[in-house]
Simulated assay, not measured.
Amino acid sequence: MNTEQLVWDCEQPLDLSSISISDSSNTLLMIYGSLTKDASQTLKNYFSKSHIIGCSTAGEISNEGVLNDALVITFIQFEKTAIRKSVRYLSDYQGACKALGSGLATDLLQPDLKHVFVLSDGLQVDGTYLVEGLRSVLPQHVKVTGGLAGDCVNFMETKVYTENMQASGLVVAIGLYGDALQVSYGSRGGWCAFGVERKVTRSEGNVLYELDDQNALEIYHSYLGELTKELPSSGLRFPLEISDPEKGTKLVRTLLATDDELGTITFAGNIPPGVSAKLMRANVNSLIDGAQEAAKVCRDYIEKSPQVAILISCVGRKLLLKQLADDEVDAVREELGDETILCGFYSYGEIAPLDNRHNSELHNQTMTITAFSEK
């Protein structure tokens, strides 16, 4: 596997003259950030045989650290690993995200499929059902990782990129094939629950109406105080932990939008009726520790230092970390080593197993890492 990275400031024409990786069907370009039409056309012209995927972000992660309003292009040329891509529009499924996910998985399913990586619209697509659809088709040993596109903290429009399109409501998945590929993953948060544990008494999909038969938005207002005026962005600092007694698992859900008239809160993942819920908070040190723990988990399940690692971290973490966002990337670097090239973005949702022993889930407020190397 050969890897290179280019960081473009979007001010000058995109120059690819420094890139030595060749255009081939085994070459993958991952693009995170602000992609212009001119830059997209340049990439397509130079890499007409390669697979191009990417998305808009709430901040970009490069090998040198965290960026804003840039474009990070990571070039990965596999030596022994084959690549296939599937692209689906949500509109073609009348909003049925589970069916969309199963369609993607069906396109990619082959006997030698090793891993699936997915990038999705971050506002229109329900990531919980998307993952359920993918898992319903894929065999147990094939895991799914990836994330939901971001839009800074605007929550207006997110886009997914391929070589032929840039669009909202789009989901792209790539399948990686062959025994030469080694894949590892880890996902951790660093948030701590606080306050009263409540029961979700009314919800529909990812929209929360009531906790303990009380208006959920009013409960959030009571905790946020003056920060209520800054909703929905201030809500990113106070995610919701949900515990499903039937599954014995805990997941974190990020607040995406509020509706004062209806008294509802929309989250970046489903909130099933009957689960327990508690608000969460964190400090800088606990988030950095969470990122380091995700990297440790990732490193422990791969034979050698990975050649490339994709870091997808939640926008809520970036808001809390502020200028210290680089520190969580540095914590990952410390664990994975200098030989690993890092890329990724700040997201509206992260997709991964907690580690190699668990199934893939939609997470919020985590640092999620996918690492690749070839034997």
Rank of each mutant, 00 (worst) to 15 (best):
K247M: 02
N206P: 06
L113Q: 10
V131A: 08
P239F: 15
Q124C: 05
V66P: 00
I73C: 06
R188I: 07
H221K: 06
Q307G: 13
T249N: 06
G122C: 11
T106Y: 12
A309F: 00
H51S: 11
C192Y: 10
I242S: 08
R88S: 02
N26F: 01
V284N: 14
G225H: 08
S34H: 08
V200K: 04
Q12D: 02
D300K: 13
F194Q: 03
L130T: 01
S305V: 05
K114M: 11
Y346P: 06
Q214G: 08
L287H: 05
S360D: 10
A257I: 06
A277E: 10
I21Q: 04
T228N: 14
F155E: 03
F78D: 09
S286L: 04
D330P: 03
P111S: 09
K278M: 07
G146N: 09
E374T: 07
L287Y: 06
P353S: 09
V332G: 02
Y346E: 10
P272E: 10
I369H: 00
V329E: 11
T158H: 11
V284S: 13
R333E: 11
I53R: 01
Y46F: 03
G65Y: 10
D69S: 14
A216C: 09
A268C: 04
K278D: 09
L256C: 10
L104D: 14
L211G: 00
D23L: 02
G122D: 02
I341E: 00
V66H: 08
S234G: 12
K80F: 12
T249K: 15
A193N: 06
A331D: 07
A295S: 12
T158K: 14
G190R: 04
L311A: 04
T3R: 04
K247G: 12
G316M: 06
A216G: 13
S24V: 07
I31E: 04
V275A: 02
S187M: 01
N356S: 05
F372M: 11
D326K: 06
L100C: 11
S22P: 05
E197Y: 07
L311K: 02
N164Q: 14
G235S: 14
L109N: 13
A291F: 00
G122A: 00
